[in-house]
């Protein structure tokens, strides 16, 4: 599933400086507000869904080579977070949908976890 498709399914707004990143294919997803758990349990290259909003969410994703972060529950990324994401070549999506529902929609659409 591409990042573009994920954004459509979640009705998300998209932040990236590189349009071509939206065509990147993603196979797995991980949802958590606890970054230590993301580092412990998430698969590399997954999309990260989180309701936590701070620069360390971007860094955590960067360490795991995650190409995309979805901020759920209507969280709006700050300019600082967006700048760090851009530097890390990570696409930021924002959706009003809650974490559980957002994960459910992606799972139903065929995005699995390993």
């Amino acid at each position: 599933m591409t990042i573009r498709e994920i954004a459509q399914i979640l009705g998300a707004s998209v932040h990236t400086a590189e349009e071509e990143l939206l065509d990147k294919d993603i196979e797995t997803a991980f949802g958590s507000d606890m970054m230590s758990d993301v580092l412990a349990f998430a698969d590399e290259g997954s999309v990260l869904l989180s309701g936590l909003l701070n620069p360390q969410v971007i860094r955590t994703a960067h360490m795991l080579d995650m190409p995309c972060i979805v901020f759920v529950r209507g969280k709006k990324a700050t300019p600082e977070i967006l700048a760090l994401a851009e530097e890390s070549r990570i696409v930021v999506l924002e959706t009003p949908i809650r974490l559980y529902s957002a994960c459910g929609r992606l799972y139903t659409a065929g995005l699995d976890s390993r």
């Binding site: 507000d33 606890m34 970054m35 230590s36 758990d37 412990a40 701070n54 360390q56």
Partner: peptide
């Protein structure tokens, strides 16, 4: 509240 301090640092 910043997403750390779950006691996973050293184990990780």
């Amino acid at each position: 509240s910043l997403g750390f301090g779950a006691g996973m640092g050293l184990p990780n």
